[in-house]
Design a protein around this nucleic acid. Structure first.
Length: 501
RNA sequence: CGGGGUGUAGCGCAGUCUGGCUAGCGCACCUGGUUUGGGACCAGGGGGUCGAAGGUUCGAAUCCUUUCACCCCGACCA
């Protein structure tokens, strides 16, 4: 049996496999504080690439970056009723501002704060407070702000990248004069996320609207992109909220319009987080390790010099350096190709596996024999077998190969989703679609079920025992009448249902 | 917060039931050598006081009490 880079494999133990990917690709590890993670250089480089692309997209759509503080007065969170209920129970609270030596030698909190501060779980309240000050007239609108920051949500159960107590994200906050404009913004940012997911992460997504039960606390409408992971579960990868006038009324975000009257602004918020790294892992990685889509890979090509005798070293290294330089002048996706010459003294096989596990798209092995023929031994992360190729041909084609890999990853992920998405027309069929045929591998059953439904408490109650949730009502669907599979009521709405992260 | 489980070297584990030599093994790490187009081999070596505190005992990783942390299953969630 072929030895896999990762153990356990996906089919043996999917959650265990996920953890091993994170560890053996050197992406992150747990910190001494429960629920918090240390993101290691390779993982952070990946996040930086995501940030860079998204940041450009936000700026192209007219947003500006700003920064709001980490600490928020407790009273701010109390202003919007639903918002309170949604976030209060997972807030970390700062109650003191000083430590003093205690009686037993340790330090004890002293200097109790008049008003407790909460560590932001999201920044609607503090941003809204500032928006209220900044917005006076319709001429100040629209106001379109984004911030890159960390937030804290005290989750009960955590998994690296997918759900951590502290996570990195961006949160966009905008205020508009009209409802339609705010709705357009909400949809626009969802499109931005979908484009990023599909074109950069090579991760196909379904764009849709959340049901009432799944909506962001305080929003009138929540849109999301949903992706299918390799275990057929759904992962919410990005959200865009239309907040109506809920927050502007709670926070007094008013403006004077052209005819002198006063109106409340319409606001939106939208965000994606380091969870995207988890999504990337579960979309593309295999039993040998991480697989990175070339457009986001911190390094596109790694060159591994093969040195058998010391006297060959100088010659081989020189050749590798010149090759690296030549490759770095090639453009891929509008940038220079990122090349690494790995001259660490690992042995050949070990070095190869190291880069396979980290998901580097292309490995080149260069030894005296290759130098003589002016050819390269090429290993693609998406193909099991390496092959030889003349150097000039490789340099010419490398950009094309990377693009082919990018597209290949998308196609494969899309096929998985299409193969595991089914129209379901009755509740019986629905139950068997999600039935646990094999208790040990229940996560591999089911997928996305597309059904007619009416959003109501009865449906929610029927879904609970199945551990299935409505993921979204896809946008752009054909409107045709149907029957709700839960209640039998007539409806025109079709939704995607799945087990989810 | 409820149910179950686990804490012994960086990682993975044995030893605990039935207390007893210097706490062991694999991988990783360090040194030397032989190797090198594929996750090497041989030899030598460093590192743990057994999650923590208290107790029983001549003697505790092992028994008792308390406590903390982590994992899995629920409720919650980007």
């Amino acid at each position: 049996m072929a030895k896999t880079g990762i153990s356990p494999t996906r089919s043996e133990d999917y959650p265990g496999w996920y953890q091993q990917i994170v560890r053996s690709a050197d992406l992150a590890e747990n910190s001494p504080v429960r629920g918090c993670m240390v993101i290691k250089p390779w993982g952070y480089a990946l996040w930086e690439n995501m940030q860079r692309v998204l940041d450009e997209m936000f700026k192209e759509t007219g947003h500006e970056n700003a920064y709001f503080p980490l600490l928020i007065p407790k009273s701010f969170l109390e202003k919007e009723a639903e918002h309170v209920e949604g976030f209060a129970k997972e807030c970390a609270v700062v109650t003191h501002h000083r430590l003093e030596p205690g009686p037993d030698g340790g330090l004890v909190p002293a200097g109790k704060l008049e008003e407790p501060l909460i560590i932001r779980p999201t920044s609607e309240t503090i941003v809204g407070y500032m928006f209220a000050k900044w917005i006076e007239s319709y001429r100040d609108l629209p106001l379109k702000i984004n911030q890159w920051c960390n937030v804290v949500r005290w989750e009960m159960r955590v998994r690296l990248f997918l759900r951590t107590a502290e996570f990195l994200w961006q949160e966009g906050h905008t205020a508009h004069a009209t409802k339609d404009e705010a709705l357009d913004e909400t949809r626009l940012m969802l499109d931005v996320y979908a484009k990023f997911a599909e074109e950069y992460m090579a991760m196909p997504v379904v764009k849709g609207e959340k049901t009432e039960g799944e909506r962001f606390p305080g929003a009138d409408m929540t849109l999301s992109i949903e992706a299918m992971m390799q275990d057929r579960k759904a992962l919410q990868a990005g959200t865009s909220h239309f907040l109506g006038q809920n927050f502007s009324k709670a926070q007094d975000i008013k403006y004077q319009n052209a005819d002198g009257g006063e109106s409340y602004a319409w606001t939106t918020s939208w965000g994606v987080s380091t969870r995207l790294v988890g999504a990337l892992i579960m979309t593309h990685s295999d039993d040998d390790g991480l697989v990175l889509p070339p457009r986001l890979a911190p390094k596109h090509v790694v060159i591994c010099p093969v040195v058998r005798k010391e006297e060959e070293r100088a010659k081989v290294m020189e050749y590798c350096e010149s090759l690296a330089k030549e490759l770095a002048d090639v453009q891929y996706d509008g940038k220079r190709i990122a090349v690494l010459v790995d001259d660490s003294d690992k042995r050949g096989g070990e070095k190869k596996w190291y880069h396979i596990k980290r998901g580097v798209p292309i490995r080149l092995e260069v030894g005296p024999r290759d130098i003589e023929n002016d050819s390269l031994f090429v290993g693609r992360r998406d193909q099991p077998k390496s092959f030889g190729m003349p150097r000039t041909e490789f340099v010419e084609r490398v950009s094309e190969i990377l693009e082919e890999m990018q597209q290949g990853l998308f196609d494969k992920a899309l096929k998985l989703r299409v193969d595991n998405t089914q129209q379901v027309n009755s509740f019986e069929e629905f139950k068997s679609f999600f039935a646990e045929k094999n208790a040990a591998k229940q996560e591999f059953h089911g997928g996305f079920a597309e059904c007619y439904f009416v959003d109501c408490p009865e449906m929610d109650a029927m879904l609970v025992p199945l551990k299935v949730t409505p993921r979204c009502t896809p946008v752009d669907q054909d409107v045709e009448p149907g029957i709700c599979i839960f209640t039998g009521k007539p409806t025109q709405t079709r939704g995607i249902f799945a087990k989810s992260y």
